[in-house]
Design a binder for these strands. Structure first.
Lengths: 204, 204
DNA sequence: TACTTATTGTTGAATAGTGAACAAAAGCTA
DNA sequence: TAGCTTTTGTTCACTATTCAACAATAAGTA
């Protein structure tokens, strides 16, 4: 079954809507935005917007979904390639390439993520992203935890790590991505080494 | 007779073509560009290009024409508003607003004009622009020349002034518009005051 | 509270752009 | 020079977007 190619007009129209959405969120905040605002800023017909999205809430939902799906796809693809087995001992540096890819993806969606995570963005986005980090990423490492080595309750550990990740991502975005994805991935890796990793018992 | 509104898709498609055209001229120079290059870079269908332009030469021609028409429109509108009469004595500062508008227009078309006037642009564009400056702008001042005060042949004067204008425009574009349209308009005005204006006999 | 303005959601006919295909021409390479 | 590859210019049926209009709803104001 061959994958049907999307008409480039659809892709283009959606990109224009997202760009307008991002600018308007920064300008006036999600709640104050109207569909008319969006279509004016995107320079498209109002009817066209309704062809793509039900309303502005649907737009937010689908936009966030795309971000989460993008992140998830990266992790799934990485895992598939890495072909990890519980028998193998995992080293922290094994995850550096994954980290870099994730930060590159975030960088590609910089404006949108920065706005969403900012003061005028979606209040629930932070929470959703945190859960994505937990479900998509951190739960994959559960099998690698040496249960008799775990010094703290796992749920607290996950809450700690995911919030730390989120905080670091937010700082990177707020400072205009002043470091490369590689650099920030290393910062994350090295910060984790002398923190959560040790308490988890994963070999360094 | 009401002015028919252009479909925004037409405007958008043409803008995308021009943007692609500008990038490719910088990248490989006009001669090396193919229509296929243009439509790939613009992300439009090849057939669509042919709906708008005959070939790449037609694209160049129409693009330049738009620039010249834009400049001309500014001058014509200014003249209309200024409502100058030969009886009135013209002062140099009277033209500052016109200068500013012209530089603003150039600024709005910065990328395209910079590339056209650059080493990989259209070799004839400089010459055409010079003639536009003469025909559109400088010839309007002929009636204000005090013939018995003119110290040099008028055709030499026009050649001097138009080249000076062009040189100043090019420098501004090449230096990435490091000064505002207002500033560069003043530079032009003040440079002219102690040069061509004096020899023309226009009151300072 | 009543009135005005702005926005919404939808509709239909028209228009612009799309993808794929084709023959011919141009450009490139051995 | 012959053969291959790329580009051109065009066509057609289909799709996405457009514009304008409309009634209903929501928001704003006096």
């Amino acid at each position: 079954m061959t994958l049907k190619k999307t008409d480039r007009r659809i892709t283009r129209t959606r990109r224009m809507i997202i760009e307008a959405f991002t600018l308007l969120m920064e300008e006036k905040g999600f709640e104050a935005i109207t569909v008319s605002d969006l279509t004016e800023k995107a320079d498209i017909n109002r009817g066209t917007f309704y062809q793509h999205y039900k309303d502005k809430y649907d737009l937010l939902e689908q936009s966030e979904k795309e971000i989460f799906e993008g992140l998830n796809k990266i992790v799934v693809t990485f895992w598939h390639h890495a072909n990890y087995d519980v028998e193998k001992v995992m080293k922290v540096d094994d995850l550096l390439p994954l980290s870099i890819q994730l930060f590159e993806f975030i960088g590609e969606n910089y404006q949108f993520m920065r706005v969403l995570l900012g003061p005028k963005g979606s209040p629930s986005f932070q929470n959703k992203l945190k859960h994505v980090i937990i479900d998509t990423l951190l739960h994959r490492f559960s099998p690698f935890l040496k249960e008799d080595h775990v010094m703290v309750p796992p749920d607290y550990l996950l809450a700690y790590i995911s919030s730390a990740h989120l905080g670091l991502i937010q700082h990177w975005l707020e400072s205009g991505m002043d470091r490369s994805p590689e650099e920030v991935a290393r910062i994350l890796s090295q910060t984790a080494i002398f923190g959560p990793v040790k308490v988890s018992g994963i070999q360094i």
